[in-house]
Computed example of a mutant assay.
Amino acid sequence: MSDIPVISAVQPTTGISTDTSRLGSRANLEKAGKQFEAVFVGMMMKSMRQAHLASDLFESKGLDTFREMQDQKVAQSMADTAPLGIGKAMVDFLAKAQAQTATAAEADAGHAGGTPS
């Protein structure tokens, strides 16, 4: 006989967490909103850089890397100090959806434990 264990079912990892416990805190939602806004602003800045409105005279791979790092810091700073409002809108939407889900769950629990009419 072989000493190799048999695995009956292997579920592939998708990289998406199904743990929603961290959504329970408003502080976590606000942190995620700021991070989302920073990513959005970063993508917007990257898109603007790709327009190549300046001369390529002094361009190099090192300068491109430095600009990307600088853009990330600027995007994070913008999200923290002067947000566009996208992150806040996302936080408000998720908080509202979370409240509705909690209310529906409580209503279902109340109907399940109630007496039949």
Score class of each variant (00 low, 15 high):
F58N: 15
M45C: 05
G42V: 06
L57R: 12
S47F: 05
M1Y: 07
I7S: 04
S47L: 06
G114Y: 02
A102I: 02
D64A: 15
E59S: 15
G85I: 00
E68T: 15
S117D: 01
D56Y: 05
L53Q: 13
Q11D: 12
E59A: 14
F58D: 15
L84A: 05
N28V: 07
S8Y: 14
D64C: 09
G87C: 00
H52E: 15
V10L: 12
V91W: 02
V91Y: 00
A107Y: 02
V91I: 00
F58L: 15
G113D: 03
S60Q: 07
M78I: 15
G114C: 04
Q50P: 04
V74E: 01
A89V: 07
N28L: 05
E37L: 00
D108S: 04
Q70V: 11
I4R: 14
T101W: 08
G114N: 11
P12C: 08
S117M: 02
M90I: 08
E30C: 09
Q70S: 14
I4W: 08
E59I: 10
A97F: 02
T115L: 10
D92C: 03
M43I: 05
K34S: 08
V74C: 02
G114D: 12
P5M: 05
E30Y: 09
A107Q: 04
V6K: 12
S17M: 04
F36Q: 04
E59L: 13
